[in-house]
């Protein structure tokens, strides 16, 4: 454990110039390719249009959904924050693998903790570019104002982004250790979380035994909290605190597993064979 924590190399402090260098590197990359920018916006917009029209249809035909206006489209947007947050983190990491640049970075004074912080910042930047148009579109076309959540939106956002980063750190460690053969996990892991996080339905829909598993995931608390806010007009601070507590544990576990996989990659020579 000691060597794992030392692997973070906190000892000599974190240097902002190295973190900003990495953010600058990903920013240059993003601006160098319009398809990358287009894709950031394209999928979230497509999502909100599809689900927005579905919600409009259901709301016209069912009293409950008319009452619970916005739960579907709200869930779509919050889900995208979770999903795009993880992708924003992991894709920036994958860019280094695709570019065979990891050796250059690992040989530079950049510390693993600085690398991870840069990836988190980049995840926020990519998320802003991708989700903001989606939120504005929902406002204009479907009369759904995400910012109408008020302060609870901050709690929802923080919990979702923490989960996305924890999963991003974990899958990046897997790719570091196992090479690009593990790349598919980056794209698919979050979809494994989706049914259990109860994005579009309440936890009570799940079989009793599966509910215990669902409550182990921080996003479950967020989506339940969102439904409580929209349907019962009640902010469930207790749910947010539970989510935060589990997120802290997830974060620590993700950091430890990342360092363990980095050490393992160094033992197995994976860092000099960053292909498949």
């Amino acid at each position: 454990m000691r060597s794992l924590i030392e692997g973070l190399e906190f000892g000599r402090g974190i240097a902002w110039h190295r973190i900003s260098a990495m953010v600058m590197r990903y920013w240059y990359l993003l601006l160098s390719s319009w398809p990358r920018l287009f894709e950031l916006v394209y999928w979230p917009v497509l999502q909100v249009i599809t689900w927005g029209f579905l919600q409009s249809y259901v709301a016209q035909n069912a009293g409950f959904f008319a009452r619970a206006g916005g739960t579907l489209i709200g869930a779509v947007i919050l889900w995208d924050i979770l999903f795009r947050g993880q992708l924003g983190f992991s894709i920036s990491f994958l860019e280094e693998m695709w570019a065979r640049n990891l050796g250059n970075l690992m040989m530079s004074p950049l510390k693993p903790i600085e690398f991870l912080i840069a990836l988190m910042i980049m995840s926020l930047i990519r998320l802003t570019i991708g989700v903001l148009p989606m939120v504005l579109l929902a406002m204009v076309v479907f009369d759904f104002n995400l910012f109408g959540f008020g302060l609870p939106l901050g709690a929802f956002f923080c919990n979702l982004i923490f989960t996305s980063w924890a999963l991003g750190i974990f899958v990046s460690g897997l790719v570091l250790r196992h090479g690009l053969g593990a790349e598919s996990i980056v794209w698919s892991l979050m979809f494994g979380v989706m049914p259990l996080a109860c994005v579009y339905y309440p936890v009570s829909v799940l079989p009793h035994w599966l509910q215990f598993v669902a409550w182990l995931l921080p996003p479950t608390y967020v989506f339940e909290g969102m439904r409580a806010l929209l349907i019962d007009h009640q902010f469930r601070g207790d749910l947010m605190l539970w989510a935060l507590g589990i997120n802290v544990l997830l974060f620590v576990a993700a950091f430890i597993s990342f360092l363990a996989m980095l050490n393992s990659a160094r033992r197995h020579g994976s860092l000099i064979q960053s292909g498949e």
Binding site: H17, R18, A21, R25, L29, A99, G103, P109, L110
Partner: peptide, 24 residues
């Protein structure tokens, strides 16, 4: 080393700037 590359989409100046900042 031949087993690492410079990021190909970045310009030469951008690559050197990023690495220069990493090395302060």
């Amino acid at each position: 080393s031949p087993y690492v590359d410079m990021p190909s989409r970045l310009t030469v100046r951008q690559n050197l700037t990023v690495f220069g900042k990493l090395y302060a």
